[in-house]
Amino acid sequence: MSILETPVQKWVGKVHEVKLGGNGRKSIVIGGETTLPFLHFEGSTPNRPALAIEIQDMEPPDWSPHLLSAWGEVTKNPADWAKKAAQYGADIITLRLRSAHPEQGNTGTAEAKKTVAKILSAVDLPLIVLGPEVAEKDNEVLLAVSELARGQRIAIGNCVDKNYRTIAASCLANGHTAIAKTPNDVNLAKQLNILLHEVGLPLDSILNDTSTGSLGYGLEYTYSVIERLRLACLTGDEMTSAPIICTVGEESWRQKESMVTEGVPLNWGAHEERAIIWEAITATSLITAGGNIIVLRHPKTLELIKQQLLNTYQGRITKKT
């Protein structure tokens, strides 16, 4: 019998390895793969995709009751919330400094620092801190947090075309990683990486957020942008080799399929289960495309995706180069 030759593709590039945590905290390495996701026969995947849980610095007034009841009382206290997320098996805690938003309380640097300090001492997981996504407030609170967490190698974002110099400088000064966020577009993602690189931020300190579209709401754009970035990276373009972070929970839990309880078609099925699957399928699709950090909201989704990843990578984490 003739033996088929395994169709191995020769890649020359490699996704950059980005380390979060360390210096007394648990550390995690993101990226490092030399092939597309799950293609164990042709390259190495030294680190499986990491799963983060998103928590907020205030009780979210607009979250689905299914999310709130899944977490319970801890949503009132970010440090407790982080602990519970750690118990549920999160690899990373992602903190959204939502209360700094001008319409959500307009809290300032003192509050942001206090919250982050509490979380850093409550859990030893690596931390990602996101601003309220209002330009001037982002800079204000993120810079303060960056200073406070000096040496803990957290990731901060978002770093966009308007504030990249400020965020990059702060990451450099305090030893952190920047999350470069661009709208769904391969070239814009690459361009921001080049700009960050030019102001001196090393490539091992950059994560890319290419904007996440959830299942049914632009998922296909995100899916293809991630695949194209991965292919560009593997064929040797260093400026597209940053690990990719996807804010899956945030995007899928604000859609109608997750939020609306009444007046929806019977064929949408049971609400909570559907919402969890909505988040989980968004996650698994973007992992299949090449996502490296998946930020989730529901603990059950975390459990499902983690189990799937463990099954997938059982004995497959390879150090081969």
């Binding site: 299942l215 019977l266 099925g269």
Partner: peptide, 13 residues
């Protein structure tokens, strides 16, 4: 339906 609807949506995407 709660798993079928998301799967059919993914296929469409």
């Amino acid at each position: 339906p709660e798993t079928i609807y998301p799967l059919l949506t993914l296929r469409l995407n």
